[in-house]
Design a protein around this nucleic acid. Structure first.
Lengths: 211, 211
DNA sequence: CTACCCGTGGCACTCAGTGTCAAGCAGTGC
DNA sequence: GCACTGCTTGACACTGAGTGCCACGGGTAG
């Protein structure tokens, strides 16, 4: 989860520093709360300088959000890899399952991921940044959906809204993620969420109304 | 739009100061961009002190977001006022139309509202705060929807997601809002957006799946 | 051994946001 | 007119986020 392109040596050293900072940050932020921890606290715990922190993370929010966002970035490529004939609801469900499955592959990571999710949802500043990241995904998912259905994303509201509904389903699952939940229960939550939006996702396709 | 409870005298003086700050802020932010304007610039233009600004607005983002949020706060009461038998898609469409109609009632305000919408959608920091505000509305709309359908918002994902879809429709309309659009065209955009989500909003209600 | 490259730390700076306090300015009672 | 009270304001100082700049140090190539 930590790296995807290790150009060896220098790159791995960078990754090591980033992980150290991330671990120190998540530890402190999750236990003391977001506002109660300063960047100075984090770098003191990691044994590095304040300046170095901002070379690896754009902001204090960035450490937390990127921890989830990195694992979720694959949803776009996953959607592109789904068979074109697949209904949007099914393709999107599979695409959004990727980050959740990645968490459950490593039980010890899963627990930390859940804590980070809680931290984000309960901290307004983090929640805002999280949504900001989702906006990017929505744009990319929208482009892919438009491409699949040969729709013009500038005149047809369907792609953008379909992507938005999928992310809404993800949000709902994360919101309902409880401490003891195993992978199966997470899958059930996912199914429930997608059951709600499926009629719209797979509905009467594009409505070429007035323009 | 500016006030809804004028306890006369002191309260109206407060409103006057707030409006002055808001006008100066929107003028500068819309023309120069969000990051290029400091709070000092704003208070200098308004002829007030930096400290006074933060007595009226929680943050630089707050000035911009509240300008739209204030007009949109009525959507919750409007939804509650809709007849209980009305399908969710229709009730929600009427509720979300309130802020848009409020804009079009005052042509000079409409233009500024459109500019502010552009500013918010084009500025990541503002967009994030805007979505953060929508989360509150989603919670309230969700509670109202759950109440209408006698659903438990903690076990059934429908209310939360229905509210999310409605706000997604609003977002889509704002995104596609063009300079020359009159009220009728705005209504068409609204209809198109709701046509997409309506199958999910009015679909097979709650699915009491596993819990 | 030397020259170079890159990551790092230290420092100073801007700007957002907050707490505190002293002044200004109504309205009120004497 | 005068003191008292409550509220708003401005000024100052302070914390904390985030950035630009430069000098140090430790590897690596020549």
């Amino acid at each position: 989860m930590t790296s995807r392109t290790d150009n060896s040596l220098a790159e791995r050293k960078r990754q090591l520093v980033a992980d150290e900072l991330r671990d120190a940050a998540l530890m402190l932020l999750a236990t003391k709360g977001f506002d109660a921890v300063t960047v100075d606290d984090i770098v003191a715990a990691a044994g590095m300088s304040r300046r170095t922190f901002f070379r690896y993370f754009a902001s204090k929010e960035d450490v937390v959000v990127r921890f989830l966002a990195d694992t979720s970035a694959d949803i776009i490529t996953e959607l592109a890899a789904r068979p074109p004939a697949e209904p949007p609801s099914v393709a999107l469900r599979h695409a959004l399952w990727v980050p959740l499955a990645a968490c459950n592959d490593h039980p010890e990571h899963s627990e930390r991921a859940r804590v980070v999710v809680r931290l984000i949802l309960d901290t307004p500043a983090l929640h805002a940044r999280w949504l900001e990241r989702q906006i990017e995904w929505r744009t990319e998912l929208s482009a892919e959906l438009a491409n699949r259905r040969r729709l013009d994303p500038h005149t047809d509201p369907y792609p953008r809204m379909a992507a938005g509904m999928a992310l809404l389903a993800l949000d709902t699952v994360l919101q309902r993620w409880q401490p003891g939940d195993d992978e199966q229960h997470l899958a059930e939550l996912m199914d429930q969420a997608f059951a709600v939006v499926a009629p719209a996702l797979d509905g009467p396709a594009a409505s070429p109304a007035a323009g």
